[in-house]
Amino acid sequence: MTEEPYRWLEAITNRREYIEDQLASGTPVVALSAEPGILLLTVKASTPKLFEIYDHLALGTLGHPADIEKVRQAAIDAAHLEGFTRSPHDVTARRLVSYNLAPALKNAFEQIFSAPLLFRGILAELGATAADDILWRLDYDGSFISQSGPDLARGLVISGPRGVAADWLAPVPGPELARGDLKGAAVSALKLFLWARLRGTKDQGIEFNALPADAAGLKEKLGGDVLEFALLDRALLDQPIMYRVPTADELGL
């Protein structure tokens, strides 16, 4: 069937539709670069969705757990091989995304006779200062965008419905997010998470500023869900492990 270009296009379109349909119910994941480090936040599911990849790299994911596992493992393999054969300083999210994960994801997406990878993720790289952080959004078809410099003030979100991430970045300037301290960043990240979740489900017209501004109000909106969060801690920059799970008290959540 793929010998005819039209059939191939049709197959790819169907594949994309199928994947988007499968991902649609995915829970959002938020990454926010702040002064104390990069905070990743989502709600807990049966399997973890936030992972340590390398000394200064973390991955936030949504999709099928088995597919997430494949991408996560590939990222860990590539990062550790590079860190061992060259040095940990040579392991960068840019090279990992551009030369490893994105080509592999695109290749998997275009193999139309095999099962597709149900994956969407954020790869976060901790820098020496908040201005040096870089966030990458990576999709099942190998497409990616990066966020660095002044754009980091916007935070990055992935969500089941693909349009939510773009909707968040569309208004310029966007809503202000607190990034000075961990507690402020945690409130901003949770607010962004709730906005993305409502936007993708029952309240597509939700305004970011219509949500509560304090942790208590936001937690009420969260219902019974338990948060999963991780921090690439800038205070640990001189240590080999910068990824840690902060306590709820530290985040004020």
Partner: peptide, 29 residues
Amino acid sequence: MTFPSATNACAAPLPTGVGDFRELLLRTH
């Protein structure tokens, strides 16, 4: 399906799933 692609020289090999770095190193280097 191979993930990542075996044709991409920069790509990592198939996930090992057993956490053995030396085995990974032996296979790739």
